[in-house]
Each structure stands twice: as structure tokens, then as C-alpha cells.
Write a protein that binds this DNA or RNA. Structure first.
Length: 169
DNA sequence: TGAGTGATCGTA
DNA sequence: ACGATCACTCAC
């Protein structure tokens, strides 16, 4: 059981997002230490990607994505649901992998609710944090790809990219 | 299929 | 200051 190093996240999101499948999120909550194995991710890749928040450039919301890979990008959507993203790539290359599902909790809003993820986790460095870590226990499942979900306004080219990754049964 | 919900950002 | 938008979820 090994914690992922900074190098792991300093790669293109199209490399990192599929590699995150099967890895384990370990989080310290009021209940103690809990673990969740990642089953589904999506890649959001730079200002050119019309589905990525960074398509409009750097703002206070998207600033975390412009940092060096290895921190969290957390934001609220529809006034209710916290979205958990892992920032990837080098500084000023705004990319992130959305954690869309973990074992037993599918859906990006459901898993953050279960984990207690909120605004306080934004910018958290996951290579240095005691509270939130990602671990590799050697498990490497077969991975399938598909179109990303919920990005209808993104335009034909990027809407149809197969940048969603999930574990096949 | 549509309501709930509030931060964010462009426009003024 | 205002209004449109939104990487979702749940109940019909």
C-alpha cells in the first residue's frame, strides 16, 4: 500500500485519469479513517476543452486547476453538490480529473456527500495531507472508456471525446 | 421530465 | 446589481 507521489499527478490528465481507476482514496473523518476505491473518472483538459471550466480562462473558481498537479479542485454545482477533482499536469496547464464514482457510491455528488468533501478541501495538497490521500495497493482493473456526462453545451468536438473512464466488471 | 439550490461570471 | 448558467440528484 503506497501513497501516490507528486510525479504521478504531474502528467497529462489523459494519462492520469485512467490510472486513478482502482486507486484508493483514504480520508480522515469524524468517524475515523475511511477508504474508497475509485471506479470512475472523467478528464477535463485545458482551455481548449470546451467542457472544462478553464475554457474561460483563469478566474477565482478555476485557479486551482492552474496549479501544479497533485492538489484538489472542489466546487459547488447546482447549489447543492460538491464536485471532487484531482488537478493534474504542470503549472499553468489547467487540467483536472473529476472523481465520478467510487465503490458502492456512484455519482460525483453522492460520493462527496458520503465523504464529507466541501469547500475546505479546495487546494488541498494530496501528496502532503494527512487528511486526504490516494493510495495504490497494486490493483489494476480493466478499464472502459466513454463520452463524458452532463456537458451538452460543450460543442460537438469536445462533447464527444471519450474522456470518461470506468472499471469494467 | 422537471424542481431544487446557490456560487460564479459576464454585462451594466 | 442582476440574470443566466451549471462536470447533479431525486421524485414523478
Amino acid at each position: 500500500m503506497q501513497q501516490l507521489s507528486s510525479d504521478f499527478f504531474t502528467n497529462d490528465v489523459l494519462i492520469v485519469a485512467p490510472k486513478l481507476i482502482g486507486k484508493i482514496i483514504q480520508i480522515k473523518t469524524e468517524k475515523g479513517v475511511e477508504s474508497f476505491r475509485i471506479t470512475e473518472t472523467e478528464a477535463y483538459r485545458g482551455e481548449k476543452d470546451l467542457a472544462c471550466h478553464a475554457r474561460k480562462g483563469k478566474t477565482s473558481r478555476t485557479a486551482p486547476m492552474y496549479e501544479l498537479g497533485g492538489i484538489l479542485y472542489v466546487y459547488l454545482i447546482y447549489g447543492m453538490h460538491w464536485m471532487l477533482n484531482i488537478v493534474t499536469a504542470e503549472k499553468n496547464n489547467p487540467q483536472a480529473a473529476l472523481i465520478r464514482g467510487v465503490e458502492k457510491y456512484n455519482g460525483p455528488g453522492k460520493l462527496t456527500k458520503r465523504m464529507g468533501i466541501n469547500k475546505n478541501f479546495n487546494y488541498l495538497n494530496i501528496c502532503e495531507s494527512e487528511q486526504f490521500q490516494i493510495l495504490d495497493d497494486g490493483f489494476s482493473p480493466e478499464i472502459k472508456t466513454g463520452k463524458r456526462i452532463g456537458i451538452d453545451s460543450a460543442g460537438e468536438i469536445y462533447k464527444n471525446k471519450a474522456w470518461r473512464y470506468y472499471q469494467s466488471e
